[in-house]
């Protein structure tokens, strides 16, 4: 197993004194976000986390990456308990994370600092820019690119690190529908090309079912694992066909939604 999460709990001490929040968590008390989480992730798999917003998916991801600590329980990566962030774990955040003062090439170069040979580095950078379909745009600044292209550049910057685990926190949330679909396709390609474990947070049930080898559905706060679904289907996946259509319906029901409107 690549990642094992055992009896993980996370509580925040409620410090806000605003009346607005009093109903939810009175100040001074502990507000439990994650409750007794248990699941395993296989090496090289693509795992999607879905759940209602504010349920603690991002917090969980930050704990797994070592940016945050659990209140109790543990996270094992390759059998070892991790506590500090590692340069082998790369995040792609929800917000635009490209440095706007650097060109696409220079941004990708930020991820390539581990390559010491000058020529090899330049070659690799171009290769990854090409891989995400941005060849010809390497000299452009982020503000000169569309939202989808910026996301691609960010993915290239993450991939060039050759991460052990790639963490993606709703990376395509801000994109329009068509661009999202295109990015999904790219992610499927990226995952078949690279041998890395990908953790992917999304709100989009269809996105999770199309991308994931494993989909973990979380409940509302305090968050528990509602379902841990293995999806052993080849790509491309048609969500309209059985048995994926049945799974899709089930996930909708799990999240308290109706698949047909």
């Amino acid at each position: 197993m690549k990642i094992v999460v055992q009896d993980l709990n996370k509580c925040f001490l409620e410090r806000r004194h605003s009346i607005r929040f009093l109903g939810q968590c009175p100040p001074g008390t502990e507000c439990r976000v994650l409750k007794d989480l248990n699941f395993c992730i296989e090496p090289g798999s693509f795992t999607c986390f879905i759940g209602p917003s504010g349920c603690g998916k991002s917090t969980l991801m930050r704990i797994i990456a070592g940016f945050d600590s659990a209140s109790s329980g543990k996270v094992l990566i390759d059998g070892e308990e991790c506590s500090a962030p590692s340069s082998r774990h790369v995040f792609v955040f929800q917000e635009d994370g490209l440095f706007p003062w650097l060109t696409v090439w220079q941004n990708v170069a930020i991820g390539a600092r581990h390559i010491h040979d000058h020529e090899e580095r330049a070659e690799q950078i171009m290769e990854y820019i090409d891989l995400v379909g941005l060849a010809g745009f390497e000299g452009h600044y982020p503000h000169q690119l569309s939202g989808g292209m910026r996301r691609r550049a960010e993915v290239a910057r993450a991939l060039i690190v050759e991460p052990d685990i790639l963490f993606m926190d709703e990376p395509f949330g801000a994109l329009d529908f068509v661009t999202r679909l295109q990015m999904r396709e790219e992610m499927v390609n990226v995952h078949t090309m690279f041998d890395m474990t990908i953790l992917f947070i999304t709100h989009d049930i269809d996105e999770a079912l199309q991308l994931g080898d494993q989909v973990i559905v979380f409940s509302d706060r305090p968050s528990t694992v509602k379902a841990d679904i293995k999806l052993d289907f080849p790509h491309p996946r048609d969500l309209g066909a059985e048995p994926l259509a049945r799974i899709r319906r089930e996930v909708y029901y799990l999240m308290g939604l109706h698949p047909a409107l």
Binding site: V90, E95, G97, F99, L102, I110, R113, R157
Partner: peptide, 22 residues
């Protein structure tokens, strides 16, 4: 923006590099 600092941290930018590049 907080995001830029988190990205810098994530990519291991420290010291002078952090100042000059971010």
């Amino acid at each position: 923006r907080e995001t830029y600092l988190r990205v810098a941290d994530n990519f291991g930018l420290r010291g002078l590099d952090l100042y000059m590049k971010v």
